[in-house]
């Protein structure tokens, strides 16, 4: 359902991402593993239309080309991003943040239904609807950010290092939620440094290094591979 090819991003003279290609199937969880500065965030931002891509890039979601659309149209086409730093509406309430997720006409009628889906995954949010989002803890804010993205009724959910700044306990709680999102038919693509926990819930994975995708395999293969062991899993 997702096919990315020839995706390159240049920051001035620096080539941050070179000819990236990847795919994701319906309901699949795919993880892109890489260290700091490997180009993970750039890859995901390029797909969401937040950074300019070089000519020739192709991002196809269910047969629709996304690479020529501005960011807000990409959301409408079914790709939602939970960005690094979350970019919540910090001074607005949790309820307002979630309702803004259902801003697009396509998603408005389904807002109540989507809200129930969010509560099914993150029951905690139901009690916090009136709280101002900026006053929540990091883990709770991450839940609101994912919830807000779910409200856009995405076909593909992109997550940019959701574990960043969270305790191991909160991270595993958050990662446990992802399969339940994928079960509803929404594909999930996340970029992570946290290899153990992300490979545990993923179906497939890619390795990225210095802006180039250097390897791919099923989650099981990657967990057992000697290269991955050495580079990402600490021996």
């Amino acid at each position: 359902m997702l096919e990315v090819s020839n995706l390159s991003v240049r920051y001035g003279r620096h080539l941050a991402l070179e000819d990236a290609a990847l795919t994701a199937g319906e309901g699949e969880i795919v993880v892109v593993l890489g260290s700091n500065g490997a180009g993970k965030s750039t890859l995901i931002k390029a797909m969401a239309g937040l950074v300019r891509t070089e000519p020739g890039a192709r991002v196809m979601l269910e047969g629709k080309p996304l690479h020529k659309l501005p960011a807000h149209r990409i959301v409408d086409a079914g790709l939602a991003l939970v960005p690094e730093g979350r970019h919540l509406f910090g001074t607005l309430t949790v309820a307002e943040n979630l309702m803004l997720g259902a801003f697009l006409p396509r998603t408005r009628d389904k807002a109540d239904e989507s809200m129930e889906k969010v509560f099914a995954v993150f029951p905690k949010l139901k009690e916090r609807l009136a709280q101002v989002a900026g006053t929540m803890s990091g883990g709770e804010q991450q839940m609101v950010a994912i919830g807000r993205a779910m409200m856009t009724c995405p076909r593909l959910l992109l997550l940019d290092e959701p574990s960043l700044g969270l305790s191991p306990l909160l991270t595993s709680e958050l990662f446990k939620a992802l399969p339940s999102i994928a079960e509803t038919g929404t594909s999930v693509l996340l970029v992570e440094q946290n290899s153990h926990q992300s490979l545990a819930i993923a179906d497939r994975g890619y390795l990225i290094e210095k802006g180039v995708i250097t390897g791919e395999g099923t989650a099981k293969e990657l967990l057992e591979s000697a290269d991955v062991q050495k580079a990402y899993l600490g021996g």
């Binding site: 969401a48 501005p70 807000h72 149209r73 959301v75 509406f89 001074t91 803004l100």
Partner: peptide, 24 residues
Amino acid sequence: TRTGMALRAVSVDPIGARLVGIDV
């Protein structure tokens, strides 16, 4: 109103606003 909420959203976080489909 929905439009009012969208305007406030853009004023708080323009990137967040784009990510929920608001044309900034």
